[in-house]
Nucleic acid binder design. Structure first.
Lengths: 346, 346
DNA sequence: GTGAAAGCGCTAACAC
DNA sequence: GTGTTAGCGCTTTCAC
C-alpha cells in the first residue's frame, strides 16, 4: 500500500494541508480541537512526513554531520576518541529525532575541500560538528563556512575566534597532571608531544611546561619527545626516552594512545609500571581502563563536548543564535594505577 | 551568491534541463558534443545537483544506514567492532560518493521498531546494513523490510535465509582455533560463551565443541562459562574458571572483548599469560594488538563484510538484483603472544 | 538524440 | 485560526 501524504491526512481530518503542516511542525495558531482531529488522522493513516520533500521546501534537514580526521590513516585507529565523539553527538541526535552522518576525512589529501562540499550538498545537514585537529585548520573551516552550513568547532586550539566552539582546558589540566606527578616525588618528568597540526594537543605541552614550573622543576629539552598522536609513536618515543642515561621516572604523553604505547615499550624493556616508571596520558579513552595497570589520565569530556555541539546545531535551526560563543567544559584528572611514587633511586 | 540550478546550466549550455539531467546522471542518448558543452557549463557555474530535490523526485537517496547494537549499553563500548564495521561501510561509500548514516540502537527497548522506521523515513537511505546481533532478530528484520528499504544482514546466524546477507565461518574458525590450542598440548580448554541473543557468536561455541572432538578432547560442562560479550563478563567468567580445582590451561573466549577481560583477570590473579595460561579470542579488534601480551585471535573480516554489504546496497539501487544471496568471507587465525605450549603441570 | 510538461510532498507567504 | 497558491530543484513520462 502506498504511503499517505499530507493531502490524505488533510482530507481525512477535514482541514487544509497547511493546518496539518502546522500540527506536524508544532507551530502555533492551531485550535486544540483541530489539532486533536489532525493527530487522530495522522495515526490512523500512519502518516509520516517525507523528509526529502521537507528538506527541499525548507532548505534544512534533520541530520547533522560529524566530521573528523580519518583514523584509518593512522597506524592503529584511535577508536576511543572517535567513539566518544560519536556517542555524544548521537545522544543529542536521539533526543531531538535527528540522524547522524559521519564523515571521517583525511586532511592530508588535496581534495578535502571538495569532499566536504560534496558531503554538504549531498546530505544538506542542518549543521556540522568539526572535531580537532580539523577544527583548527583554517582551510577546512573556511570550506565549510563557504557553504553556509552552521558549524561548531571542537577544541579549535586558538582562543576561540568568532565562531561557535566547544573547548576544554587542555592546558590547565596538563599543568595539573604535571604538578600531580611532581607531588609524587618525580624529578625527571618526560613529555611526549602530539602531532604538531593538532593545536589542542599542542596546548598540553604548554600545560606541561607550566606545571613543571609550578612544581619547581626545571624544563629540559632532552625529556621532550615528538610523537604524532599514534600508539606507535608513543612506543617509539618511550623507547628513546627510557634509554637515556638518566632516564625519566615519569612519562606524560599528550594523549592516551601514545601513553599506551609507552606502557608497551616499558613492558618490553622490562621496566615495571608504576614501580619504576609512572605513565600518564590524556583523553581517558575506554582502553585506559582496560589495560593493566589501568592508566592515569585526564578525562577529556569529549562526549559531553560533542553532545553540546550537536545540541547547539539542533537548536540553532531557527536561524542564527549568538553567532560567536565558546562553551567551556573542564577536564578532570583520573588517577589510576599507572602512576605512583617516584622510585628511591633512578 | 545563489547556487546555480539545473536551469542555469541548461540556459548556459543552450540545451534543455532534461539533457543536463542526462549528463549529470550518466544516462545514455547524449551526443558527445552536447555532453561536453553541458559539462563545461557545469564547471563554469559550479553546479551541484541538489540531493533533496533529487531524492524527492526519484524516491531514492545517496545515503546508506548502518544499524548496530548500541555499544554504550555495554559496560565498556566494544568500539573495535563498531569501528571496523564503520570503516568498511565508509570505504564503499567513499568510492561511490555516498554518505553514511550511523544508527546504534538498543534492541532491548520497546521502541526499536519505531526508531528504525523513523530513521528510514527521516533519511530515506538507499539501503540499510544490519549488523549482528540485530541481524538475527526477526522482529527488527521485519520492521525494516516492511518499509521496503533494501537490507543486507551481517552474520545473521542462521543458514542465510531468503535475504541478502554477508557471513563468515564463525563455526569453522572456532573449531580451527580449538584444534590449534589442542595441538599446543592443552588438555583442558575452557570456553566463554557470548551473549545468547547473538547467533553468530553462538556458532562459535558449536565450533569449539567440534574442535574439541577433532582434537580428541572430551567436552566438559564445567569448562564452559556464560559471558555476554562484554569485557566485564569475560573477566568474571575467567575468575570463576581459574578458581576451579583443576583449572584450565587455555581459555578461548567467544569474542576479543571477553578475552581481554580474561587477561585482566589472569593478571590480577598472578597467572602468567601465556606461560601458565593461554588465552584466545575472536574478532581481532585493534586492541588485540595493543595489549600485552598481544592476543591470539580469529580475524573476523568485519571490515570487508561491511564493505561488501555497502557495495551491494549501492549497486542494487537500480532495483532488485538477485533477491537472495549469501556472500561468504572466511575468517583467519591470528596467532600472537597470548597462546603457547601447555605448562608441564597444572 | 532531445525537449516539454507534469509532478514528487512538502513549506512559505500571504490572504481570509 | 485557517486556507490558497506558489514554488523548492529535480526526475519522469512521453512526445518529437
Amino acid at each position: 500500500m502506498k504511503r499517505s501524504t499530507i493531502f490524505d491526512v488533510a482530507k481525512l481530518a477535514g482541514v487544509s494541508i497547511k493546518t496539518v503542516s502546522r500540527v506536524v511542525n508544532h507551530e502555533p495558531n492551531v485550535r486544540e480541537a483541530t489539532k486533536i482531529k489532525v493527530e487522530k488522522a495522522i495515526t490512523q493513516l500512519q502518516y509520516r512526513p517525507d523528509q526529502s520533500a521537507r528538506n527541499l521546501a525548507s532548505h534544512r534537514s534533520h541530520m547533522i554531520g560529524l566530521v573528523y580526521d580519518d583514523p584509518s590513516a593512522y597506524e592503529i585507529p584511535s577508536s576511543g576518541y572517535v567513539m566518544r565523539l560519536q556517542q555524544g553527538a548521537l545522544a543529542a541526535c536521539r533526543a531531538a529525532n535527528f540522524e547522524l552522518l559521519i564523515h571521517p576525512c583525511n586532511y592530508r589529501k588535496r581534495q578535502v575541500n571538495a569532499e566536504l562540499t560534496s558531503l554538504i550538498e549531498h546530505a544538506r545537514p542542518a549543521g556540522i560538528i568539526l572535531a580537532a585537529p580539523l577544527s583548527n585548520m583554517p582551510k577546512i573551516v573556511r570550506a565549510i563556512e563557504a557553504t553556509g552550513t552552521p558549524l561548531v568547532q571542537l577544541s579549535p586550539g586558538n582562543g576561540g575566534g568568532k565562531r561557535l566552539s566547544v573547548v576544554t582546558g587542555d592546558r590547565d589540566a596538563s599543568a595539573e597532571m604535571t604538578r600531580y606527578l611532581a607531588s609524587l616525588g618525580h624529578k625527571t618528568i618526560a613529555f611526549i608531544k602530539g602531532h604538531p597540526s593538532h593545536k589542542a594537543v599542542a596546548n598540553r605541552f604548554l600545560g606541561y611546561c607550566e606545571g613543571l614550573e609550578e612544581g619547581n622543576l626545571k624544563f629540559s629539552d632532552r625529556l621532550v619527545a615528538d610523537g604524532d598522536n599514534s600508539f606507535g609513536s608513543g612506543e617509539a618515543c618511550a623507547e628513546k626516552l627510557l634509554k637515556l642515561k638518566n632516564r625519566p621516572t615519569a612519562i606524560f604523553a599528550a594523549n592516551d594512545d601514545m601513553a599506551v604505547g609507552v606502557m608497551r615499550a616499558a613492558s618490553r624493556l622490562g621496566i615495571k609500571v608504576p614501580a619504576q616508571l609512572s605513565v600518564a596520558g590524556f583523553d581517558d579513552i575506554a582502553l585506559a581502563r582496560q589495560i593493566n595497570p589501568t592508566l592515569t589520565t585526564v578525562r577529556q569530556p569529549l562526549t559531553d563536548m560533542a553532545e553540546l555541539a550537536a545540541e547547539a546545531l539542533i537548536k540553532g535551526k531557527n536561524g542564527s543564535e549568538s553567532k560567536s560563543s565558546v562553551q567551556h567544559i573542564p577536564a578532570a584528572l583520573k588517577l589510576r594505577d599507572s602512576t605512583g611514587p617516584a622510585p628511591a633511586q633512578a
